[in-house]
Amino acid sequence: MRLTQPQITQVWADRGYAGELVDWARDRLWLTLRIVSRPKGTAGFVVLPRRWKVERTIGWCMNARRNARDYERLPQHSEAHLNWALITMMTRRLTRKSPRTSHWTKKTP
């Protein structure tokens, strides 16, 4: 990732990636690796910051039936199918006649 996307300087990771990887990413890749963990004293399901955006996007990609399973032999084919699914999703949103209200955005009075 660092070779193809040098403008990325910060990455968020799950708690499982904490430890030596944070130092290694800083020293070798010049990346800031931020660990997203659960707030202390919480039980059950908790929406974690930044993580829900990734999970939501993966959910949107999985709506395309071909992306629900990994049938491809080459990673480039899988990447092309993901791009195809995201382009399809964005063109549908751009050509929508009326804007859809979302419960994720704040309503201004």
Rank of each mutant, 00 (worst) to 15 (best):
I35T: 06
Q10E: 14
A25D: 01
G16H: 13
A85G: 09
S102N: 05
R38E: 05
R34F: 00
G19W: 08
M89V: 05
I35W: 02
I87V: 15
R50C: 05
P75E: 09
T101P: 04
K107N: 04
V46E: 15
R65A: 06
P75M: 03
W60I: 12
W60D: 06
G59W: 06
F45H: 12
H81W: 14
E79D: 13
R50G: 00
K107E: 07
Q10D: 12
V22K: 08
Q5V: 05
P39C: 00
V54I: 15
N63H: 11
N63D: 03
T91L: 08
P39N: 05
V47R: 10
P75A: 05
R73C: 01
M89G: 03
H81R: 13
R15Y: 07
E79W: 13
E55T: 03
Q7I: 01
E72D: 13
T57N: 12
R15G: 14
Y71V: 09
E72Y: 14
R69P: 02
G16F: 12
N67R: 13
K53V: 14
S78I: 01
D27K: 10
R34N: 04
I58W: 12
H77A: 13
T105H: 10
A25F: 12
F45S: 04
R92V: 02
I8Y: 11
P109L: 01
A25R: 00
V36H: 02
G59T: 08
A85T: 14
A68H: 11
M90R: 13
Q7P: 01
P75N: 07
Q5T: 02
W104Q: 09
Q7C: 03
W60L: 05
R50T: 08
P6K: 00
N67A: 11
I8T: 11
L33M: 14
V36W: 00
I58K: 05
I58R: 03
A85C: 07
F45C: 01
D27T: 10
A68S: 09
H81P: 00
Y71W: 15
D70K: 15
R50K: 14
G44W: 09
Q10F: 04
N83R: 14
K53R: 15
R2N: 02
W30C: 06
L21D: 06
R66E: 02
P75G: 08
L33E: 08
A68Q: 08
V11K: 01
M90N: 11
T32I: 03
R26A: 02
V46P: 00
G16W: 15
N67C: 09
K107V: 04
R38T: 10
N63G: 01
R28M: 15
S98C: 02
W24C: 03
I8F: 04
R69G: 07
N63M: 06
T88P: 02
W60F: 09
V47Y: 03
D70Y: 15
P49L: 05
V36E: 02
L33F: 06
S102F: 06
W60Y: 13
A18R: 12
D14Q: 06
N63Y: 12
I35H: 06
C61I: 15
K106D: 10
D27P: 00
W84N: 06
D14E: 02
R34V: 13
D70M: 15
K53A: 10
I87W: 15
S37D: 05
T9L: 01
E72F: 10
M89T: 10
L48V: 10
K40N: 09
